[in-house]
């Protein structure tokens, strides 16, 4: 709690800095793409949010595992805190994707494997959050959502392959992976990296904040309970 309290402003500040610099650089200081025009610049929101959306689920998975194995209470809350942030990022990725797709592919939505995978990821997040909401006893809720998260992860990966099998798609190949820099000129690459770092830090800051809130809420409950018993 103390450690996270000391870190939080720094992480938040760094996130803000990266985002401001990255986005301004990306939006105003890069040339338009010769094929895609100015629309390409939505990449600075689209790619980082998509990245964080996936990593958010990973964080939930790891936190759930820690909860199930070590029964570390805070890890359950981290998983709980990460879910709404993750789903928001998923929605941002989907929406910016749609906005980008409209001028590029001439359609707001296509059942392309990546888009579909993200829609499915959205469904998984939704179910996970709904289960947290539905169960009153916090420990039971943490246990059950952890089990769901693990089973869900397996099925999410299966879905990903199933979707690839189902439609080979029109999405451009991954625009980011470390060895594919040649797909993108450095003028886009550096601000993009900055934006990705910014989104990751933002995610971290939000999860920390939400976890701290959650911890405080639980402390309050414990204190109220003590009051009532005394």
């Amino acid at each position: 709690m103390q450690v996270s309290g000391r870190f939080l402003p720094w992480v938040a500040g760094l996130a803000a800095l990266c985002l401001v610099v990255g986005l301004i650089w990306g939006f105003f200081l890069t040339p338009d793409d010769y094929r895609q025009g100015a629309t390409v610049k939505i990449i600075f929101l689209h790619v980082p949010s998509a990245l964080v959306a996936i990593n958010g689920w990973m964080v939930m998975l790891v936190a759930s595992l820690i909860w199930l194995i070590r029964r570390h209470h805070v890890s359950a809350l981290v998983a709980k805190a990460a879910a709404p942030v993750g789903i928001t990022m998923t929605v941002i990725a989907l929406m910016t994707g749609a906005i980008w797709g409209q001028p590029m592919w001439g359609t707001w939505w296509a059942w392309d494997p990546r888009l579909t995978s993200f829609l499915i990821l959205f469904m998984f997040y939704l179910g996970y959050i709904a289960l947290w909401q539905a169960i009153e006893d916090p420990d039971t809720a943490a246990d059950l959502t952890s089990v769901l998260c693990m089973v869900g992860s397996v099925f999410a990966i299966l879905s990903r392959y199933a979707v690839l099998f189902w439609n080979q798609g029109l999405h451009q190949g991954a625009s980011l992976s470390m060895d594919k820099q040649q797909h993108m000129s450095d003028t886009y690459w550096y601000p993009l990296v900055l934006c990705m770092a910014g989104f990751m830090l933002l995610f971290l800051a939000l999860v920390l904040l939400r976890t701290r809130t959650e911890v405080r809420r639980r402390r309050l409950q414990a204190l109220i309970l003590r009051e009532r018993m005394a």
Binding site: M123, L126, G127, F155, L158, S159, A162, V163, F165
Partner: peptide, 19 residues
């Protein structure tokens, strides 16, 4: 809630089966 939980898990089965 059950349908919300189960339907995402049904995705791969549905895709391969219907395919």
């Amino acid at each position: 809630l059950l349908s919300l939980l189960v339907l995402p898990l049904y995705v791969p089965t549905l895709i391969y089966g219907a395919e």
